[in-house]
Design a binder for these strands. Structure first.
Length: 260
DNA sequence: ATACCTCCCTGTGGGC
DNA sequence: TGCCCACAGGGAGGTA
């Protein structure tokens, strides 16, 4: 599920439900989602402290805890952050539950446990975790973006998916962006001319803006991604049967008629 | 630099 | 019905 827009939604959940509140209790229901920290240390470092203002970079979400450490959340393919009340029934995939002041809970829910929750000791450790990521997809400027494309030989979709190049775009967003920009996902990035590169950038901005409003890539029938699970998918723009292939191991869908 | 493979997990849907 | 496999909106690590 989670790409940048979903994580932005989780950031808002943390901001509205958690910020400024004290963590009364940390319940680790499945330690399999903890990365580089054990349940005991997590409880010791987090319980009794207040949650700070959450910050998102790409698909990573960082929550300062008190004046020292920070919780760093990554949601993999199936993770989410859910606001709940203390009496709400638990979901079987609720892996970590923070109980806050006022009977509120924040629940890290994740079926597949492909990623997880980290505890950074302080700002330097947060920086270290973010160091491998490129600029956030919502923050990068057009000039930098066009230059990024010009420097890469590989498929343009592969570049967009590469979190160390630009952070936050996932498989669905990339297909949607390239369809809007009318660019074939397998084109070498550096083969795009200036106008095409600018179209990709503009499409990225628009797709992200709309998706962030919905806190997800919306399943609209007017979007390419609203059709990818159809048994015989056709382009919502021109009706041509869609093609699909694999790029960097990910299923890739595009329209052979309106993307070039 | 880049592409491909495997692995990490769980669940679902299709084919037999 | 059960079994087996492929596949999935994530990423890391190793290899050629």
């Amino acid at each position: 599920m989670p790409e940048l827009p979903d994580v932005e939604g989780f950031r808002e959940v943390l901001d509205s439900c958690g910020r400024g509140r004290r963590v009364r209790r940390v319940e680790v229901r499945d330690a399999g989602v903890l990365r580089g920290v054990g349940a005991r240390r997590l409880r010791r470092e987090v319980e009794g402290r207040r949650l700070g203002r959450p910050h998102r970079h790409g698909k990573l979400l960082v929550t300062p805890v008190g004046d020292g450490p920070a919780l760093v959340w990554h949601f993999g393919m199936t993770g989410e952050l859910v606001a709940a009340s203390i009496g709400d029934p638990l979901d079987r995939h609720d892996r970590v539950v923070l109980t806050l002041d006022g009977e509120r809970q924040l629940r890290y829910r994740d079926q597949r446990k492909l990623q997880g929750v980290r505890l950074a000791d302080g700002p330097d450790a947060v920086e270290h975790l973010l160091a491998g990521l490129g600029p956030d997809a919502l923050g990068i400027g057009r000039g930098d973006f066009v230059a990024l494309l010009a420097g890469r030989r590989g498929a343009v979709k592969g570049l967009l998916m590469d979190q160390s190049a630009v952070a936050g775009l996932g498989n669905l967003l990339c297909d949607e962006i390239l369809w809007r920009a009318r660019v074939v996902p397998g084109r070498p990035a550096r083969d795009l001319d200036e106008a095409e590169a600018r179209r990709v950038f503009a499409a990225m901005r628009r797709v992200l803006a709309t998706s962030c409003r919905a806190a997800r890539v919306p399943p609209r029938r007017s979007w390419l991604t609203g059709h990818r699970d159809d048994s015989e998918p056709v382009c919502p723009r021109c009706g041509t049967p869609l093609h699909s292939c694999r790029i960097n191991g990910r299923r890739t869908v595009w329209c052979p008629a309106c993307q070039h």
